[in-house]
Structure formats: C-alpha cells, structure tokens
Design a protein around this nucleic acid. Structure first.
Lengths: 237, 237
DNA sequence: TGCGCCGACCTGTCAGATAGGTCAAGGCTA
DNA sequence: TAGCCTTGACCTATCTGACAGGTCGGCGCA
C-alpha cells in the first residue's frame, strides 16, 4: 500500500516555499509594491535548490499575488482579476460552464455594483462612466471598439462601487467577454437593436450620475435582460 | 532607452508554452480528467528546455487548470475555488480588501444562490442542506465543527443553485472564513446569540426545502445582516 | 551638483543527472 | 481461465552548475 492516507496530497518542497513566501508577506505586513527577498535567499533559507524556489515564485506569480520580472526583485502585486479571468475562460472551454450561467452571475453582481456606484461614485467617476457610454454611441460601427468600451464601462461602474472585490470579479469577466463578443453582437442583427443596447449603457450612466440607486439597478437589469433575450432569440444559449 | 513600448510585458518562453498547453486543451476539446502530453513533449515541440515547460505546467497547476502529480501525466482539472480563495486571502492580508467588503459581495451572491436553490434543488440536496443545519445545532459547543459546517452549508446551497460559477465563488470564500471565524464567533458573546445564528441556517434550509425562493432569499439576507451587525457591534469591522 | 558609467545582484534559460512514483502489459499462480 | 503480482517504460520532483541579459544603486568624473 503506497499511501495509507487517502487523497492526502503530498506536502512538496515547492508548497513549503510557497508557504514561506506568503508567511513572509503576512508576518512583515507587506503591501502592494513592497519588495520580496530573492529566490536564492528563500532557497537558502528553506534548504532547497533554486529551481524549487523558482517554481514557488512562479506559482504565486500565476495567481498574481507577486509580480516578478527579469533583473528586479519580486514585488507584492496589487489585486488583479486576470488570473480569475483565465480560470473562467478555461471552465467555458472545458464545458464546465455555459455563457448563460456566466450572465446570471454577472447580472447578480452588476445589479449591486450599479446600485453602489450610484451611492458612492465621485463626480470624476460619473464623468468617466458617462464618457465611455457616449463613446460607445459614436464608435459603434466597428465591433472591436464597442467591445472594449463595453468592458471598460462595466469595470468603471464596478470601481465606482468602492469595493475592490466587486471590481476584481467584474474585471475577471473581461477575457470571456472578449472570447464571445462576436456571437453576442451577431445576435443583434439590426442597427436599431445594437443602438438599444448602447442606449442601455447611457441610461445606466445617467442614473449613476443622479445618485439614483434604484434606477441604476433597474437600468442594469434591463440591460442584462435585453442582452440575454437577444442571445436566446438567436438560439445561441 | 531599454524598451520603447511602455509596460509591454515580454512574451517569455514560459508564456509561449502556457499558450501551447491551453491551445492543446481547446483544440482537442479536452474535458476534466483528460490526460495531457508530458512536460518533455511540450518542451520538445516548443524547442525549449524541460525547465521552461515545467514552469508552464506549474503556472497552470497554480490556477488549478491542470492537475499534476508525481509519476502520472497531468490531467485537465475540474473547476476549483481554492485558487481564488488564496487570492482573496492575500488581498485581505495586504490590506487591499476588508472583511466588510467581502461580506457585501457574499451577501449579494448568496441571496441569489438561496433563491436559485429554492427553485432547483433536488430532494437529496434539500436533505443535505437541512442535515448540515441540524448538525450545526447539535455541535455548536466547539467552534471548529460549527465553522466547517457553516462553510459546508453555504457551499451546499451554492451547489444546489445549479450554477457552477456560483458554487466556485462561494467555495472560494472558505479560506478567508477559516482565517476570520474566531473573531466573528467572539462577536457573539452569548449562547443565545450564537443559537440565533445557527437557527438562521435552519430557516434558510426550510425555505429551500419548501421551494419558496422569496423566503429563502429573505432568510439569507437576515442571516447576513445578523452576522454583519454582530461584527459591527463588537467594533471588529 | 549632476550626469553617466559600472559592477553587484537578480531573473530567465539551458543541460544533464538521480530518486522515486505510476501504470499497464504480461507472466505466474490458484 | 481468472485473478494477482512482478516488472519495466515512462513520468514527475528535485538537484547541481552554468551563462546570458536586465536592473539599480553607487561611485567617479565633469
């Protein structure tokens, strides 16, 4: 019997070094931007080779907990949703998650970010959100620009909610949106329908500017419902 | 001038191999459990050393996109929230995120999972959720058991929502809950208050069993409000 | 004082080597 | 013949040593 304890993942050397690094961050109260000791010093301290320490750094770097770069010391990284975005993307590709399920989660989260943004947005944020919505209107001919503006719009609303975890989650939907934008756009065959979608953003922006949380939430709900209905009508989801 | 393009991260060899691996998964339509080629074969194909391929595998393994283990080939991994849990934990430790902000996100998400669970739960899931809530009642003396039961309860509700992304997100709150359970429990100084919290779970379970989405949502809201109020009263958040 | 050069230090990548785990094919035993 | 066990090919985990190239602070020169 090779292993009496079932399913007990071995505590590898790399895992030990990962724990040492995270402990170092916690014990010293490091914040984003703070520099970490080098790979070699962690390797020396843990009594392992540099290759092991490298893989530990690589793991933390993949999760965007630290920021490594050639020549410099690694730094503690600010929160970043791209790693979660990769995971969601992966789940879609491996048939563990459907677009419709993602829209349900997004709707749930973004109804709240819209309401919070109406309460908490600064004047500058209200301007930013309105500007993005207005830019969508002027550049809706090409799909690429509108897509990036749409992603930026939802991210800006989430940032204005003043809750970094909401901002993190919303930004993590970016990758999967980019992967599936084309089919969503094709689901709205006429210019009028596309303009309806863009006008939805402007209504949201206006409600947030007015500080009307209820209206912002309702406008965001209408926006999502319109999108999902278009996808359903096109038989895509 | 070392780099004319600002902030353009170099496309390293490791990144190239990561892309090759994800492309392989997508191009072949691999699903969780499917085996991947070995590190060496990816290294050979990309014309890089095995160390580079190893770090690419390590990156994907850190994100829980693949599952590597000594002796076996790597496999495509099922969705798992532990990586996101690590990230949230890190954000709390580096003062990028407060407990209260996490509770706001959890409340937003779990009101929805409770409502969906009421619609979609199977009879077996209704039993599982009730069982966990009842077990909390009988074992509330020690903090450890109640904590794990609480985490299991919220995860079970999320699974019953039939949306794997909700389940993923809710399970990713486990680590930070374990880190901060003690202070939350201490915020409820009397047995009566602790019993109130546990009874909240039973009310939620009953509403989900009855298929009453509105009641389940309201019960979950009451549960979160009670918890946050206790933390606020204790001056913890 | 200010600018530029330089060296110490760091990461990125490579090659080769050993230990130990996994898994399935094929032989052996009942 | 069915089930168990050995065995070997293959794979990952880790180590060692080496070199190229990037970063950054400090020293010296103007």
């Amino acid at each position: 019997m090779p292993n009496t304890v079932e399913n007990e993942e071995p505590y590898t050397l790399v895992d030990q070094v990962i724990d040492k690094v995270t402990d170092h961050i916690r014990h010293n109260g490091l914040e984003p931007g703070a520099a970490l000791p080098s790979e070699s010093s962690f390797a020396l301290e843990a009594g392992v080779s540099r290759a092991v320490a490298r893989e530990a750094f690589r793991s933390l770097s993949a999760l965007r907990l630290i920021d490594v770069g050639n020549g410099r010391r690694a730094r503690v990284a600010p929160a970043d949703g791209s790693a979660i975005g990769r995971m969601i993307d992966h789940c879609v590709y491996t048939n563990q998650l459907s677009i419709q399920q993602i829209f349900d989660v997004r709707r749930t989260i973004e109804l709240r970010t819209a309401a919070l943004a109406a309460f908490r947005r600064t004047p500058a944020e209200a301007d930013e959100i309105s500007d993005i919505a207005n830019n969508m209107r002027t550049s809706y001919a090409g799909t690429g620009d509108v897509m990036e503006l749409d992603i930026a719009f939802h991210a800006a609303v989430a940032r204005a909610s003043r809750n970094p975890l909401f901002a993190l989650l919303v930004s993590s939907f970016g990758p999967v949106t980019r992967q599936n934008w084309a089919i969503g756009w094709a689901a709205r065959p006429t210019d009028a329908e596309r303009m309806d979608s863009i006008d939805g953003h402007i209504i949201i922006a206006e409600a947030i500017r007015q500080g009307d949380a209820k209206a912002a939430e309702r406008a965001m709900a209408d926006h999502f419902d319109l999108t999902v209905r278009a996808l359903l009508n096109a038989g895509i989801i």
